[in-house]
Design a protein around this nucleic acid. Structure first.
Lengths: 205, 205
DNA sequence: CACGCATGGATAGTGGCTCTATCCTAAGGC
DNA sequence: GCCTTAGGATAGAGCCACTATCCATGCGTG
């Protein structure tokens, strides 16, 4: 198919498709000659991925480019999922701080939860976040950390099970990113409702 | 104090202060005459609030304006806290959909958690979010909803206790917004770590 | 008393981001 | 052989959060 058909099937305007091509999110079509290029079902799938990551998950072009580059480079699926987790849950690119109270608190959490204690983006992100909270003078007691981590341990026991290993890499990224995002948002909505409920109980009953 | 001193004490450039004045985030100083205005400690506090909401919580100018307007209008503290929760946890302005599977699921959660079942932003947001997930073909089983809500119920039992009712309304908003944001982010970091840990156990142990 | 310079106020410009519109050339189809 | 249309390049738009410039005013300093 050519650009126009790709546009109509995906619902993305030709101008935007050209933009994604320029930005390297969409690989160029196979040039049949100087002024015609042929696009495949893979391009359509890629466009759906881009749309979902932009509109549902809210990633920016750079983040999307990072993910699709990995996909195109044939990076192993586990690494891909880790990358998806990093951008979707905003684990950032923190400088790995090695000592300090925050690192100790992270160690403590990992220990009393019995989690495997290997280094990871999530671990660095947690340490960095605890440092940030300390810097903002927001105390995080061991009690809170224990309760939160227990709650998240319970939650993590379930949701990955739903992922029914998709066929293509693009679809894997799509389902993983959208699933992670929607589930984390679901958690926050439930937290809001729980907090509101507790507040009502406290003040009105 | 005058603009320049306010700028130096707050660390905000005069140009930005003028911008906040124009946008109605910062009330005008008391005009001593045509070309001089005097700013108070309240202005400094307001600037600190704006800074925190922009840089830490990541709110935009419109959201901040909404909150400070409420503060200036002397809205009751509980309403203020509800507004803070709405913008910080992204509860949005959803159209209150009354019926449908999602609404039933929300009812079910509230029922088996024993939460007071009054209408609220959080409740609408949850229903809307469940509808969104259904639209995206992401199934949310009752098991997941039960586990998630249980976890959030446990979490909500703790963290509001830390709020030591601050003196001024601006400080109340600041501590509430920053606290909510950082705690919710903490939860997501812990979720990431928990998921990574479960994944490792599954694949390597 | 007069001059210079900071202040407040208005207006316009900047830079980043994500598109979107225009223009041009080169072909394919009728 | 002409007209439509794809593809490619470039420039522009619109939003956001500032940031810089300009100007009249009038306080403070000498």
């Amino acid at each position: 198919m050519q650009l126009n058909e790709l546009s109509q099937r995906s619902g993305v305007t030709p101008a935007s498709i050209k933009y994604y091509l320029r930005e390297g999110l969409l690989p160029p079509g196979e040039a049949v000659h100087a002024t015609r290029a042929e696009y495949s079902a893979g391009h359509l799938e890629r466009l759906e991925l881009i749309q979902a990551l932009r509109q549902v998950v809210g990633l920016n072009i750079g983040q999307i480019r990072g993910l699709v580059k990995m996909a195109d480079d044939g990076v192993p699926r586990l690494d891909l999922l880790a990358a998806v987790q990093r951008v979707v849950l905003d684990l950032g690119n923190y400088t790995t701080s090695v000592g300090g109270e925050a690192a100790e608190a992270t160690d403590a959490v990992v220990r009393f939860r019995g989690w495997p204690d290997s280094a990871s983006d999530a671990r660095n992100a947690l340490t960095a976040h605890l440092e940030l909270m300390a810097g903002l003078k927001i105390p995080v007691s061991e009690t809170v950390l224990e309760a939160y981590s227990k709650a998240m341990d319970d939650v993590a026991g379930l949701d990955i099970a739903a992922t029914t290993a998709p066929e293509s890499t693009d679809r894997l990224i799509l389902t993983a990113a959208v699933g992670m995002h929607m589930h984390s948002q679901l958690l926050l909505k439930l937290l809001a409702l729980a907090q509101a409920s507790h507040a009502i109980r406290r003040y009105h009953g």
